[in-house]
Amino acid sequence: RTVITEEFKVPDKMVGFIIGRGGEQISRIQAESGCKIQIASESSGIPERPCVLTGTPESIEQAKRLLGQIVDRCRN
């Protein structure tokens, strides 16, 4: 099985929602997708915060879908 790493950007102001209380939301996304997610600790003042996704191509797609759902929910 091929493990790859891909960068994905999330809106900086939504990082708190993505991580969740005590990290529970990000842990759930990682468990559900099987993908490791590392969010940069600093956005360096830019509106997007880079995340590094590591896993199989399928797990990365699943993680991006779950992250996208959270971002959409927070935008509305």
Results as ranks from 00 to 15, higher is better:
Lys64Cys: 02
Gly23Ala: 11
Arg73Cys: 05
Cys74Tyr: 06
Gly55Val: 00
Leu67Pro: 01
Asn76Glu: 13
Glu6Lys: 13
Ile46Trp: 07
Gly45Lys: 07
Ile4His: 05
Arg65Phe: 15
Thr56Asp: 04
Thr54Glu: 09
Glu6Phe: 04
Glu7Thr: 14
Glu48Phe: 07
Gly16Pro: 12
Ala63Ile: 02
Glu24Arg: 15
Arg75Ser: 13
Glu32Leu: 11
Ile70Lys: 05
Ile18Met: 08
Thr54Arg: 13
Gly20Gln: 06
Arg73Gly: 15
Ile18Arg: 02
Ala40Asn: 08
Asp72His: 13
Arg21Gly: 09
Ser41Asp: 10
Arg73Tyr: 05
Ser59Tyr: 01
Leu53Val: 03
Ile60Asp: 00
Lys9Leu: 13
Arg21Pro: 15
Glu7Phe: 15
Asp12Leu: 04
Cys74Ser: 13
Val3Trp: 07
Gly45Met: 07
Thr56Gln: 06
Cys35Leu: 01
Thr56Pro: 07
Ser44Gln: 14
Ser27Gly: 14
Ala63Cys: 12
Lys13Tyr: 15
Gln69His: 15
Glu7Gly: 08
Asp12Ala: 13
Gly20Glu: 06
Ile26Leu: 13
Ser27Glu: 13
Met14His: 08
Ile60Val: 12
Arg75Ala: 15
Thr54His: 13
Gln69Pro: 05
Thr2Ile: 15
Ile46Tyr: 09
Ile18Ala: 03
Gly23Thr: 07
Glu61His: 12
Lys9Val: 11
Thr56Leu: 05
Pro50His: 11
Glu48Ala: 05
Gly16Phe: 03
Lys64Glu: 02
Arg73Phe: 07
Met14Trp: 09
Ala31Cys: 12
Asn76Gly: 15
Thr54Lys: 12
Cys51Asn: 01
Met14Lys: 02
Ile26His: 05
Ala40Glu: 15
Gly68Ala: 09
Gly68Met: 14
Arg1Cys: 15
Lys9Ala: 14
Arg49Gly: 05
Thr54Val: 11
Ile70Pro: 02
Asp12Met: 05
Glu32Gly: 03
Glu61Asp: 15
Arg65Asp: 12
Ile18Lys: 03
Gln38Cys: 10
Pro11His: 03
Pro50Tyr: 06
Lys64His: 02
Val71Pro: 04
Arg49Ile: 05
Gly34Gln: 10
Pro11Thr: 05
Asn76Trp: 07
Arg49Lys: 07
Pro50Cys: 10
Pro47Phe: 07
Pro57Lys: 14
Leu66Asp: 06
Cys51Gly: 03
Cys51Thr: 06
Glu7Arg: 10
Ser33Thr: 09
Ser43Ile: 15
Phe17Trp: 10
Ser43Tyr: 08
Lys36Gln: 09
Leu66Met: 11
Ile19Cys: 07
Leu66Glu: 08
Ile39Cys: 05
Cys74Ala: 15
Gln62Asp: 14
Pro50Val: 12
Ser27Thr: 15
Gln62Pro: 01
Pro47Asp: 11
Gln30Val: 05
Val15Glu: 04
Gly23Trp: 04
Ile18Glu: 04
Arg28Ile: 04
Ile29Asn: 01
Thr5Ile: 03
Ser44Pro: 10
Gly34Met: 06
Ala31Pro: 01
Ala31Arg: 14
Phe17Met: 14
Pro50Asn: 14
Ala63Tyr: 00
Ala31Gly: 10
Gln62Ser: 13
Arg65His: 07
Pro50Asp: 08
Leu53Ile: 13
Pro57Phe: 07
Ile19Phe: 09
Pro47Lys: 13
Lys9Gly: 14
Gln30Ala: 10
Gln69Val: 13
Pro11Met: 03
Ile26Thr: 03
Ile4Glu: 10
Asn76Pro: 14
Gly20Tyr: 01
Pro50Ile: 14
Thr2Pro: 07
Arg1Ala: 08
Phe8Asn: 02
Gly55Leu: 00
Ile70Val: 15
Pro47Trp: 08
Gln38Lys: 13
Arg65Lys: 14
Leu67Phe: 02
Glu48Ser: 11
Gly34Tyr: 02
Gln69Met: 12
Arg73Leu: 07
Ile37Gly: 01
Gln62Val: 14
Thr54Tyr: 07
Ile29Phe: 03
Ile29Glu: 01
Ile19Pro: 03
Ala63Met: 02
Ile18Ser: 03
Glu61Val: 11
Gln62Cys: 13
Asn76Tyr: 12
Val71Trp: 04
Ile29Asp: 02
Met14Cys: 09
Val10Ser: 01
Ser44Trp: 06
Glu24Cys: 15
Arg28His: 06
Asp12Gly: 07
Gln25Met: 12
Gly23Met: 08
Ala40Thr: 11
Arg75Tyr: 04
Glu32Cys: 06
Asp12Cys: 09
Thr2Ser: 14
Leu53Gln: 00
Asn76Lys: 04
Ser59Phe: 00
Thr5Cys: 03
Val3Arg: 08
Gly45Gln: 11
Asp12Val: 05
Thr2Asp: 09
Ser33His: 01
Thr2Trp: 05
Val71Thr: 12
Gly23Glu: 12
Ile46Ala: 15
Lys13Met: 03
Glu42Gly: 13
Gly68Arg: 12
Ile29Ser: 01
Pro11Ser: 04
Ile29Met: 07
Arg73Glu: 15
Gly68Asn: 11
Val10Gln: 01
Ser59Glu: 11
Glu42Pro: 12
Glu6Asn: 03
Lys13Ser: 13
Arg28Phe: 03
Glu61Lys: 12
Val15Ile: 06
Phe8Thr: 11
Gly45Asn: 13
Glu48Lys: 08
Val3Ser: 09
Gly22Tyr: 04
Ile39Thr: 02
Glu42Arg: 14
Gln30Gly: 04
Ser41Val: 08
Ala31His: 15
Thr5Ala: 09
Glu24Trp: 15
Glu6Arg: 07
Arg49Gln: 08
Lys36Cys: 06
Gln30Lys: 04
Cys35Trp: 00
Thr2Cys: 06
Gly16Leu: 05
Arg21Val: 10
Arg49Pro: 04
Glu24Gly: 11
Gln38Arg: 10
Pro11Gln: 03
Glu48Trp: 10
Val71His: 03
Lys13Gly: 12
Ser43Trp: 05
Gly34His: 05
Ile37Lys: 01
Leu67Gln: 00
Gln25Tyr: 04
Ser27Asn: 15
Phe8Ser: 04
Ala40Ile: 12
Gly20Ser: 05
Glu32Tyr: 10
Glu24Gln: 15
Ala31Met: 09
Ile39Glu: 02
Thr2Arg: 15
Asn76His: 07
Gln38Val: 14
Leu67Met: 07
Ile4Thr: 11
Gln38Asn: 08
Thr56Phe: 04
Thr5Arg: 09
Val52Lys: 14
Val71Gly: 07
Ile70Phe: 11
Arg75Ile: 06
Val3Asn: 15
Ser33Leu: 02
Phe17Leu: 09
Ile39Gly: 02
Glu6Cys: 13
Arg49Thr: 11
Phe8Glu: 02
Gln25Asn: 11
Ser41Met: 09
Pro50Gly: 13
Ile37Met: 03
Gly23Asp: 07
